[in-house]
Simulated assay, not measured.
Amino acid sequence: MQQGYQVIARRWRPTSFSELVGQEKVVRVLTNAIERNRVAHAYLFVGPRGTGKTSIARLFAMALNCEQGPSIHVPVLETSAVCRAIFNGSSLDVIEIDGASNNSVEQVRALREECQYAPAELRYKIYIIDEVHMLSTAAFNALLKTLEEPPAHVKFLFATTEAHKIPLTIVSRCQRLEFQPIPAAAIVKKLAEIAKADGLSIEPEALASIARLADGGMRDAQSILEQMIAFCGATIRESDILDVYGLASEADIRGIIDAMVAKDMKQTLARAQTLITNACDLGRAQKDILQALRARLLKAIETGSKESAAALLFMMDSFSTQTKNLGPLAFEVSLLRAIEWSQLHSVDLLIASLEEDKKKRSTS
């Protein structure tokens, strides 16, 4: 029977530690633990969605249970039945559980009893619990005893996007590893590799726009690319992405920033009106403008421009206060308020500087 189509996110799921993108520190911790035979009984993977938490959990399970393992060199799937079963989710001893739908105390008690039995086929019985923060308080309490005194053949790999919802009694019994948002440059590089392998023609600006939309999530970036292929076919341009997702172009964002820094309210309004006319997502535009202001601020600090840095900081402070219900009018007002706010404080800084100079002259 012909195999059905698999989406990009599944086809390009990492099959070895070397294929993982943007989580080098996490990989280093886990590979060192394997090489030095210091593998903990429970790990807590914390980070934004789509950054590789469950992918690394599967790879770690493969590394611990492969035929020549434990080994950091995960065999090629075609040569290892064990790794292939774990990767495909068909292994009896690597159990993936969705914490959102298996969160009752009865289900955790059943898991606690089940984990006492030796693995059916592999070296370790591994439980991967995704969105573990969704477990109920009673379920967490039922899990505590097992985490305190786990059987030698059991490993727990927890993944969550909201670590603050997990009881400290659970966190303290795990090794916590933080997953960072994947840098845009790394996402662009990986998407370019996928595009080349799939015979796609995609503009570099389009890749950059996808990375901007993904907010550090590789899975989100791959899903966006998948949708754009469905919309555009084999040729994808930046304008297509801007139209589909209501994204403001980098040139538009740069134009607004230039007008704001120049204190040109008329030009700022004209640039904002362009975004509104093009039906851009204003909430997303606000986020992009704040990111661009931050980049300008860092550059001003590096160059030692105190006055420019202060003005940019006050702009960011004012513009970031409007975060909800950002309609066209509120968007325009927030831009103008940011300019006015920075002007007022620039005057305050100037007065303070003049008074400081006056004091220095009077004491000299």
Rank of each mutant, 00 (worst) to 15 (best):
K53I: 06
A138H: 14
F140A: 03
S346A: 13
K190E: 12
D281C: 07
M62T: 03
R38P: 03
L213W: 14
K359R: 14
R28E: 15
T274F: 01
A251N: 11
T321I: 03
T31K: 13
D317Y: 07
A197R: 14
S101M: 11
L326Q: 07
V333Q: 15
L312C: 03
R284E: 15
C280K: 15
S80G: 00
K299P: 02
Q273P: 00
K360S: 09
V26Q: 10
E205C: 00
E203P: 00
E238N: 14
K25T: 11
I257L: 14
G99H: 12
E250M: 05
S353L: 04
K53Q: 12
A309H: 06
M218S: 08
L20P: 07
A139I: 03
E226Y: 12
A248N: 07
L191I: 04
P151W: 06
Q3C: 03
K196G: 07
S223V: 01
Y43C: 11
R58H: 08
T323C: 05
G52S: 10
L200P: 04
L312W: 03
M218L: 15
V108N: 02
S90T: 14
K287T: 13
I351M: 08
A192Q: 15
L177F: 10
P119D: 02
A272P: 14
F319P: 01
H41L: 08
T169F: 05
E78C: 00
I257F: 07
E96A: 08
L30W: 01
I253K: 01
R296C: 13
H345A: 06
E19K: 03
M260H: 03
A310Y: 10
A311H: 05
C174E: 12
K266G: 05
L144I: 09
L335A: 02
K189F: 01
I236D: 04
K299T: 10
G327N: 15
K190S: 02
C232E: 05
R237E: 14
L349T: 06
S136Y: 04
A230Q: 13
K266H: 07
R84M: 11
A159Y: 06
C66V: 01
W12N: 09
T321W: 09
I301E: 13
A184I: 00
N37S: 13
A300E: 09
E78P: 00
D288W: 08
P14V: 02
L177G: 06
A251M: 03
Q3E: 15
S104Q: 12
L298T: 10
S223D: 06
